[in-house]
Amino acid sequence: MGDPVVFIPPMLCDARVFADQIAELSRDNPVLFAPTRGMDTIEAIAAQILSWAPQEFALAGGGMGGMVALELLRRAPKRITRVAFINVNAQADTPKTAADREPIIIAAKAGRFNDVIAERFAPERFCEDTDVTALMPLLQDMAEGIGAEAFVKQARAVQRRKDQQAVLRKIKQPALVISSDSDPDNTKRRQDFVAEMIPYAKHEVIKGAGLLPSLEQPAQLSKILRDWCRQPLVLR
């Protein structure tokens, strides 16, 4: 049996965002899911995960979940056997980016959570071939389950996160950087930069996906993660 795998989701998503990948990996690995609602710092989320996670485990984090994965690597590198980053940003927010988050945070606080959901899952954030209309019932249900109050905490956690580029350079575990070819925020250039900072990292690009490759191209991502789980731990 392979290592336990802990999945950490993007903002406003629950375990269903990784449904296909959890089903695929659970054939050979224990699989756990780490909720990120209820805390307003990346550090607090990471501390909670470490309190219940197995002594050793693999990490797969998407978006905000990748930011949490970086903090876990900073805190407890010896407990993590391998890591996969999906559309991750290892840099801290610039002052402008942090300021640009304020209107959507204010909207959530003001009772306009549907506007938040519409902005977060806007069609232009996905691949043009993705049927966003078909995905919206799931996306809406996940977001509403998280709720406006928890979203504000997630947004604050992302807004105030530390720069983790130094952590990338210290990664010795088998590392996988996964990017989408149509993500407007986490471009291939940005993901190439992340991969280049990690010794021996492999970079996989998922075609036909944007913000959420786990839902847009589930089979592609599941295969990549399955192969990653089977990779020998030669770097430890």
Rank of each mutant, 00 (worst) to 15 (best):
D3Y: 13
V5L: 09
V6K: 07
P9N: 08
P9Q: 10
M11S: 14
C13D: 04
D14C: 04
V17L: 13
V17S: 15
S26K: 15
R27C: 06
V31W: 06
P35L: 11
M39C: 00
T41Q: 07
E43Q: 07
I45R: 12
I45L: 03
A46F: 09
A46C: 02
A47F: 01
A47S: 12
L50P: 03
W52H: 10
W52L: 06
E56A: 10
F57L: 00
L59N: 01
G63I: 00
M67W: 06
V68K: 05
E71M: 03
L72Y: 11
L72D: 09
L72I: 09
R74H: 15
R74A: 15
R75V: 03
A76I: 01
A76D: 09
R79Y: 05
R79I: 08
F85H: 11
F85G: 06
I86P: 10
V88H: 04
Q91H: 14
K96N: 07
A99C: 05
A99R: 14
D100F: 02
I104L: 11
A107K: 15
K109T: 05
A110H: 09
R112F: 02
N114F: 04
V116G: 09
E119W: 12
P123F: 04
E124I: 01
F126W: 07
C127S: 11
V132Q: 12
A134D: 00
A134S: 13
A134K: 14
P137C: 14
P137V: 07
L138W: 00
Q140N: 14
M142I: 08
E144F: 10
I146Q: 09
A150R: 08
K153L: 15
Q159Y: 04
R161S: 05
A166P: 00
L168E: 00
K170Q: 15
K172V: 00
K172A: 12
K172C: 06
P174S: 06
P174K: 14
L176Q: 07
V177G: 01
D185Y: 08
D185A: 14
T187M: 12
K188R: 12
K188H: 04
R189C: 03
Q191K: 10
V194E: 03
V194S: 02
V194Y: 02
V194P: 03
M197P: 02
I198D: 13
K202T: 15
V205M: 06
K207M: 03
K207W: 00
G208I: 10
L211V: 00
L212W: 04
L221V: 15
L221M: 15
D227I: 13
W228Q: 05
Q231I: 02
L235W: 10
R236H: 10
R236W: 04
